[in-house]
Write a protein that binds this DNA or RNA. Structure first.
Length: 153
DNA sequence: GCCAACGTTGGC
DNA sequence: GCCAACGTTGGC
């Protein structure tokens, strides 16, 4: 089983929205690296849920992959903001997964805390702040859980 | 709200 | 195939 981190802006789709909906399509990713990570996700993989562009940005909970990659339907819809005229149903360019709610942290782990933690210095989140879907090492996942004061999964 | 870092596009 | 121009992300 693998671990990942996925970013969302809290006012666009927060961990509370995911808790309410139960599960969601992770649509709208238009970055090849992020897409490739989603293509590699397996059912049951665990996801750290991260809120970006807020004060402070923070890991706010945990989600789980419930459906492995399939074409992002928004790329084919001309009325959708994520429409991609260069993509086709025969050869889709963008793929996504479905994730389900697992847990919301009572005490989110803020980015400054992540950066201050020596054991997390190699996290993609610290090294490349722009990637919206990124791999996480098992030890990193466990460290973040510990910092949140959360019991193991 | 600013702007640095990064990714993509397109002219040549 | 290079690289300047442009657009977007996201920390601050």
């Amino acid at each position: 089983m693998n671990y990942w981190l996925m970013k969302s802006e809290a006012d666009v789709y927060s961990i509370d929205d995911l808790a309410r909906d139960g599960s969601t399509m992770w649509d709208g990713v238009r970055n090849y690296q992020a897409r490739n990570h989603m293509k590699n996700m397996k059912k049951g993989d665990i996801v750290l849920y991260y809120h970006s562009r807020q004060k402070p940005s923070a890991v706010t909970g945990i989600a789980r992959v419930v459906r492995e990659s399939y074409p992002d339907p928004t790329q084919f819809d001309p009325d959708n903001k994520y429409f991609d005229p260069k993509s086709s149903e025969d050869d889709p360019r963008w793929w996504l997964v479905d994730v389900e709610f697992v847990r919301k942290f009572d005490d989110p782990v803020g980015l400054p805390d992540v950066k201050a933690e020596k054991g997390l210095a190699e996290m993609v989140l610290v090294k490349n702040s722009r990637l919206s879907v990124q791999p996480v090492r098992k030890a990193e996942f466990e460290q973040v859980l510990k910092m949140a004061g959360e019991p193991p999964l």
